[in-house]
Design a protein around this nucleic acid. Structure first.
Lengths: 315, 315
DNA sequence: CTGAAAGCGCTTACAG
DNA sequence: CTGAAAGCGCTTACAG
């Protein structure tokens, strides 16, 4: 590997001067600069970011903690994070946890060891306080769709309360009174916030009752699209028809939700945008040397498609 | 941030001794070791991997170049890579390229700058020679489902030739003679290998002709499941029925393919396993200080579901 | 405008 | 068994 020293030697200048050229310092004389640049090209020199990181006490690395790698929504979030990070010269270290506390702890330790300048958390296992480990070391962190309460945290979240109000209203208008909720399968911290938002919304509608999934709800609201789509699968395999017998509502609006075979009524939530926003927040905090301590709530939009219909096929 | 020096001071030993304890050297006296370990705990010390990386001339980082972040199959591959990397103490830097040559070049430069010890390429843009940039710098690289020809490369690939033979045979047996192929949308290097395997298989079946998609094939074979599912969407929106009017075959067997509403006939290809295998290959090469130079072909299995049926609904 | 020196936080021979 | 010293490849005051 060619180093800054090799370049200096070839250009017959000191390391300081090469460094000045690399970092675009104004101070270098044009002729010297030209010589150095020629040497860089000739040797095909790429600065060693590891060395720079050590010296500057910054790694230019963002950690991304993902509870469920295979969820397409998180793929969108990751895509957004990565795009913004790249533009800012940051790399993204991906850390899947599968919501397993042991893996999660190992991943956070690895992120600390690698001196990640900031961390974005897409989900934490139940009862985890790993975000505090990070915060106490001065690492800015933003939670996307995961919100352990801590004022130092940055938060990017969907407006679940409003979303669930829209969902319940929609179902109510279709005549549904027996509603069920399909929770998500991971033991995730704060993973019941959508459930609670749903319950609150249902409580505020006269005549609406919330029943377990196996006690014949006429409509099922799911924690996310993946779960909604799995519900459709389960219902139809059990001989029920969607939406004729049971209506189903998702959350996220993943690309597949608009598919002709699925046509899922859902709440739109732009994962890529959320990822971009999360990255921006954490990047700003890094620049300012502070915690994020900001909350960004993404507005909710109900997208009505064909997975919801009038109760009992009437109407 | 607490450093090795802080630990040394608190334990009243030298940095060398702390380093020996951390790295589990046998040489340290039990009493000394205990004192150092107590100090580590008390200070909550985490070694700085950046410093270690600089000294050891290894970053313990794997780069993962992904052409299409939102493809669920690549999410599986990434999951597999990440899992194996973690077990080996490596971090995974994710680099989306969206198959854009400019982004791709920037990502490879970033990976070089960060001194990634190895790189896994999930896809390269057409005409790209970026893998050579890496190889020439001595970085082992394995291509997963992307195979520019270079003997130094590691390759993990599906057995497209056998797969397409099975697919064509299956369709032939159902009476299909007019077949079409839905290519993938990215300008990816080697992205036509499945197409060519398909064309070869079709050529070897008497009476079979390959026609453009808009010239009424009775069966469509797609480059991957995502594209197959999009084809079903397009066909049905255009008033055609699958499989009554047109049969559709995918490739990958993403989780959704088994969904009751989709029931896609497809070729199984375990993305997580492929990712794990790719990581193992590159990790071994790093350990041995050599290029990978190995090929691993994953056997093909045809999974017949309901998206294929007899031609013209007969039978 | 350019260069010598110190130092980021580690590891690794090498003395003792 | 323990410690002093050098060095990984950079950047950053500071002289000149």
């Amino acid at each position: 590997m060619v180093t800054l020293n090799d370049v200096a030697r070839l250009a017959s200048v000191s390391k300081s001067t090469v460094s000045n050229v690399i970092r675009g310092s104004e101070v270098v004389a044009p002729a010297t600069r030209a010589r150095v640049e020629a040497a860089i090209r000739e040797l095909n020199y790429q600065p060693n970011v590891v060395a720079r990181a050590l010296r500057e006490r910054t790694s230019k690395i963002l950690g991304l903690l993902v509870p469920e790698a295979v969820n397409p929504f998180f793929a969108q979030v990751a895509h957004g994070v990565e795009g913004r990070a790249r533009l800012a010269g940051y790399g993204v270290l991906i850390a899947n946890t599968d919501c397993d506390p042991a893996i999660e702890a190992a991943q956070v330790a690895a992120l600390v060891s690698r001196r990640a300048d900031g961390v974005i958390i897409g989900g934490l296992s139940e009862g985890s306080s790993l975000h505090e480990t990070l915060l106490e070391r001065g690492v800015p962190v933003v939670c996307a769709y995961a919100a352990p309460p801590d004022p130092r945290l940055g938060i990017v979240d969907s407006d679940d309360v409003r979303a669930m109000r829209l969902v319940v209203e929609h179902l109510y208008d279709l005549g549904h009174r027996r509603l069920g909720f399909a929770r998500h399968t991971l033991a995730e911290a704060g993973g019941e916030r959508r459930l609670h938002a749903f319950l609150d919304a249902a409580r505020n509608r006269d005549g609406v009752v919330v029943v377990p999934l196996d006690e014949g709800p006429t409509a099922i609201v799911a924690h996310n699209d993946d779960i909604a789509i799995a519900q459709i699968d389960a219902l139809e395999r059990a001989g029920q028809r969607v939406p004729e017998d049971v209506s189903v509502v998702g959350f996220d609006d993943i690309p597949l939700a608009a598919h002709h075979r699925i046509e899922l009524t859902t709440v739109r939530s732009d994962g890529t945008r959320a990822g971009e926003r999360a990255a921006d927040l954490v990047l700003e905090a890094i620049r300012d040397g502070r915690h994020v301590a900001q909350t960004d709530i993404i507005p909710a939009h109900l997208i009505v498609r064909a997975s919801t219909g009038p109760v009992n096929g009437r109407g």
